[in-house]
Amino acid sequence: MSPATQRPGGTPAPAPETSSLRFGYGTNGLTDLRLDDALALLADLGYDGVGLTLDHMHLDPLAPDLAARTHRLAARLDTLGLDVTVETGARYVLDPRRKHGPSLLDPDPDDRARRVALLIRAVEVAADLGAHAVHCFSGTAPAGTDRDEAWERLAEALTPVLEAAARAGVPLAVEPEPGHLLATLADFHHLRRTLGDPEHLGLTLDIGHCQCLEPLPPADCVRAAAPWLRHVQIEDMRRGVHEHLPFGEGEIDFPPVLAALAATGYRGLTVVELPRHSHAGPHHAERSLPFLRRAAPAPPHGDPSAALEGSRTS
């Protein structure tokens, strides 16, 4: 998705007031299911796509024959009519003893290189799947690391990943993550400026994280993020508490958020992110989609009754 639709003369056209939002569900919330079973479930429930976390229980990025497995998966997604974004937040895919380790900020350059290689592989997988983006995050700054040094490491590590993304034509969507070096929208803009605003650097916006720690309300975060928005994750959350909650169990008023998202003209997937609820993944997948559809604005020329004015049910 480009930041603005271009008129023939090259001037940006105004974003549409509303657009049909497309919802997905993350496989990190369906880890007790085989990947094919998870995909079939989401297709049966009516989801538009899937947020695919590369991990050992689904599409293992480190196991043999990745290209062949990716090719089979692409065919399956096509058969089921599911779009896909590739997510890279697997907890132990690189190191069985360090959650999310090693990171792009690791003091050891060889360890940083392992994370970089995984992200480049994710870009290649995304290109083969026809994914609309690859998600990633910075990681936490190691103890004793100077903040300026941490930013330098992050920029250096992401440079070859962005080069791979440019070659593949797949945006890299960095997620501000509470507790990480890159934690806020302001931090994303710091990275963007540091790297010289590369074309293929975009943003993953997690709606719950906006509620958790951003100074702006979530709907305003969506509007502020619109030019760089390449991927969206969504769940409920409470202010100041980084806990992904099923819809209706937190504090977010979703209709204004989804109306703001629709108004941006965003065409990617909005993916339900409930990684700690995998034990009841099918239940939450079944419940989440009707909630989001009720909270979303009616698409252009659609039935206005499809939008629910007060869908928050906490």
Rank of each mutant, 00 (worst) to 15 (best):
F291P: 06
T88Q: 00
L182S: 08
P96A: 05
C210N: 01
L229S: 07
E124H: 08
R276F: 13
F254Y: 03
P142L: 11
L21K: 08
T27Q: 00
T88Y: 00
D95W: 05
D206W: 03
D148V: 11
H283R: 12
T70Q: 06
A219C: 07
G248T: 12
A122G: 03
T53Q: 00
L105H: 06
P3D: 08
E156P: 10
R121V: 02
R115N: 06
R91Y: 14
P227M: 09
A307M: 07
P107I: 04
L66P: 00
R97C: 12
N28T: 08
P171Y: 02
P218E: 07
H200P: 10
L289H: 04
P142N: 09
T11E: 15
H301I: 07
G248H: 09
L21H: 01
L274I: 04
P256D: 08
R294V: 08
D78Q: 13
C212V: 15
L201R: 03
N28C: 10
E214K: 03
A68Y: 06
D65A: 08
D253P: 05
G265C: 04
T27C: 01
S288K: 04
V271W: 01
L105E: 03
G202E: 04
G144N: 06
G248N: 04
P64W: 03
L80W: 05
P304N: 05
P299M: 08
G196E: 12
P282C: 07
G208W: 08
D36N: 02
A298L: 05
H209K: 04
S2R: 14
I252Q: 03
H100R: 13
A131V: 02
P107Y: 00
A164Y: 06
L104N: 08
